Amino acid sequence: MSELHQAAAAGDYDQVTELLRENKCNPNQKDIDWCSKTPLHWAAAKGHTEMVRILIKHGARPCLRTEYGWTPAHFAAESGRLAVLRLLHSLHAPIDKEDCCGDKPVRLAEIYGHQDCVRFLKKAEIECQAYRKLAAREGISVDDTDEEWPKRDKENLEKQQL
């Protein structure tokens, strides 16, 4: 786990800000010891809304997935972090991607009983999809795909079949 991962998980805003300002750590580094979580995954799971904002401002990609296909939105939904979900949605982060089991963040919010998150995500999913269509028509670049995920997903499926 990198210093940035640790600071993001702990909610140490000052340390995260310093590390990012000085370019000491890659905000998109996936920690192989923690299922390929990035600092943004940790911040989203812990509900550190301002940490999420600063990480994204410094290049953290909210589309990156863990080895099980979870985006930061999955972690926020599991933990009932409505403010983080609202922020991710406002920044056009993908909040409607399926993990390796076919579950979207809204399903995790349902499982864990976070009804406020469920209501928000149901509406936000529709808006997210509409924005993608608009972006495609208007030629707006949307960063909503983790390029490593299709390969990793295939590897996970092969392991499950053994």
Rank of each mutant, 00 (worst) to 15 (best):
D144T: 10
D33N: 15
Q6F: 02
N156P: 01
P62N: 12
G113N: 11
A135F: 07
K151S: 13
P105L: 08
A44I: 07
A10Y: 00
E78S: 13
D103E: 14
I32D: 14
D12H: 06
C100G: 05
A45Q: 12
K46L: 12
D143A: 11
F75Q: 10
E67L: 12
H89V: 06
L108D: 14
G11E: 08
Y13F: 15
D31A: 14
R81T: 08
L121E: 02
K159Y: 12
V142A: 06
H74I: 02
K133H: 09
A109W: 00
L85Q: 07
E127Q: 14
A8S: 15
E67K: 09
A73T: 07
V52L: 06
T145F: 14
A77P: 04
P72C: 07
S79W: 02
I95E: 03
T71C: 05
H89T: 11
Q29R: 09
P72W: 05
Y68T: 06
D153R: 11
C117L: 07
I111Q: 15
R81I: 02
L121I: 08
I95N: 00
R86S: 07
E18G: 01
E67C: 13
K30W: 04
A8Q: 02
D103N: 14
H114T: 04
K104Y: 05
E125P: 01
L85V: 07
D103Q: 12
I111G: 09
L19V: 00
H48C: 05
Q161H: 07
L108R: 08
T71M: 03
I95K: 00
C25M: 07
K104L: 12
A76K: 02
N28G: 10
D12G: 01
G11K: 06
L85W: 03
D153L: 15
R53W: 07
H92V: 00
A45L: 11
L121T: 04
I111D: 15
S90H: 09
S79M: 11
R65S: 08
D33P: 05
N26W: 04
A7H: 01
L157F: 12
D153M: 11
H58P: 04
R21P: 01
V106K: 04
T17L: 06
S79R: 13
K151R: 13
V52K: 03
G102K: 01
R21K: 09
L87C: 08
N23D: 15
R86Q: 15
Y131C: 02
G113D: 10
K24D: 10
E50A: 01
N23C: 07
D96W: 00
K151L: 09
V16L: 00
L88V: 04
P105C: 09
Q161T: 06
